[in-house]
Write a protein that binds this DNA or RNA. Structure first.
Lengths: 241, 241
DNA sequence: TCTAAAGCGAGAGCACTGTTCTCGCACAGA
DNA sequence: TCTGTGCGAGAACAGTGCTCTCGCTTTAGA
């Protein structure tokens, strides 16, 4: 039975996380101080250790929240587009991720910049981290099942990479419900690779913009990101791209 | 006149930077402590402030060193390839950057992960940061001047992005010596865009590998990066890709 | 060559950090 | 109603970046 104490506890965890999230948004991960968070909440610094074992655990909670925020922004934007307009859905995901990143730069940096706590991502973060790439995979899957994917002009995939992709896809699909698994196993590895590379191009481009690597090189940031979206959509073979 | 004092001073700066670089490589940017550095050098913590105004300035020196290390690794690998093998040179750059990143993960994270000091990159870092993209640009330029670039299957570049690219290229070329400027102004903006996107794909892919985003998704990392190199080389239009 | 100025290293000190420990208090469950 | 557990507060520790002052050394100029 979830007693009163558990309820209060969950509320406290949420409260601490929310204040920490705001501090992160304002000052960045390096400037996130558990003492400052507790100060704002009017509690002793040591009290937070009843809820989070250490600062890294607090950061991990923020990492999960950030992945969910980005994934949710992408999902929402994509779902607003006509489901038969596959290119439109693909571009919507790109736009939404960029918009989310610009609105939450520190949270973006936390999840797609240098991993700050340690090197091994905690287990809890792996599932929300895959949301966007799964969304892109679903779009490719829908296009393949519908009008079909257009032939693409890509270098042949070497055997080693091909075998690796097939093996990985099967292992991931094995842990999924059948409906989602079919989304993965149905497509040829070339398509999976194109989706992965499109996903990488999305975050690579947004990251380069956000971290200043395009300063003095590209000014039309939005137009550029959309061009990257169109180019990767064509590489995947989305019809009409 | 460069007095003895200036010489000693330069040596001290180099010594501090070197120890700091080693600490960075071992413990990462977050674990870089100026006190620890001075301790190892047997000097008082306050003494370092005679050479660097603050910790961020020390980090900036390390950022410059890291950019130079990555750029030098790329340049060296590229120069070892037959200059007429444009695809080979392109792939060599990709391989070299990845190898450097794997060998220097914390330094890679410092320059291509989240910007840790502030948001505006110090002036000194902008020049070394462009080395790799300039190298890729030169390869495309050499191919265009030699056998010519193959036609590529890309979505048309919208007018806004096109105009921005042309304007940016001219502004950058205006600050260069004529020989290097020709490398930029000669090519159509489509080629420049393909090079920029290839550069982005390179660091996006390497970053995703290094920061764990490919965990459980791609295992054949080297083969994948080379596939990305081939794909981007084809998008640029390098003959034979 | 002598002197004033500038550069320098050491040390103390400040305000801050994450984290641990101990102490009472309050409350949930038997 | 009693008791053990969970909890918050506060002190304490080791560490951080950084500033300031104090003498000493080296430099530059008259």
């Amino acid at each position: 039975m979830a007693g009163i104490r558990d309820r209060v506890r969950a509320e406290y965890v949420a409260e601490i996380t929310e204040v920490a999230r705001r501090h992160l948004a304002e000052r960045g991960a390096a400037g996130l101080s558990v003492r400052a968070v507790t100060r704002e909440l009017g509690m002793a610094a040591s009290a937070v250790y009843r809820y989070f074992p250490n600062r890294d655990a607090l950061l991990t909670a923020l990492i999960v929240a950030a992945y969910e925020g980005a994934g949710e922004a992408a999902r929402e934007a994509e779902s607003a587009v006509d489901r038969h307009d596959h290119v439109g859905r693909w571009i919507a995901v790109f736009r939404a991720v960029r918009a989310w990143a610009l609105a939450h730069p520190h949270e973006y940096a936390l999840i797609y910049g240098s991993p700050v706590p340690g090197y091994a991502a905690p287990r809890d973060t792996t599932e929300p981290a895959t949301r966007v790439v799964l969304l892109l995979t679903r779009i490719a899957h829908d296009a393949r099942r519908g009008p079909g994917l257009a032939p693409t002009d890509r270098p042949p995939v070497p055997a080693e990479l091909r075998a690796d992709l097939v093996a990985r896809i099967e292992r991931i699909a094995a842990d999924m419900d059948p409906e989602r698994a079919a989304m993965l196993t149905g497509a040829p590895p070339e398509t999976a690779l194109a989706v992965i590379d499109g996903w990488t191009a999305l975050f690579g481009t947004v990251g380069f913009e956000l971290f200043g690597h395009y300063d003095n090189i590209i000014d039309a940031r939005e137009a550029h990101l959309e061009q990257v979206a169109r180019t990767t959509a064509r590489t995947v073979g989305l019809p009409g791209a």
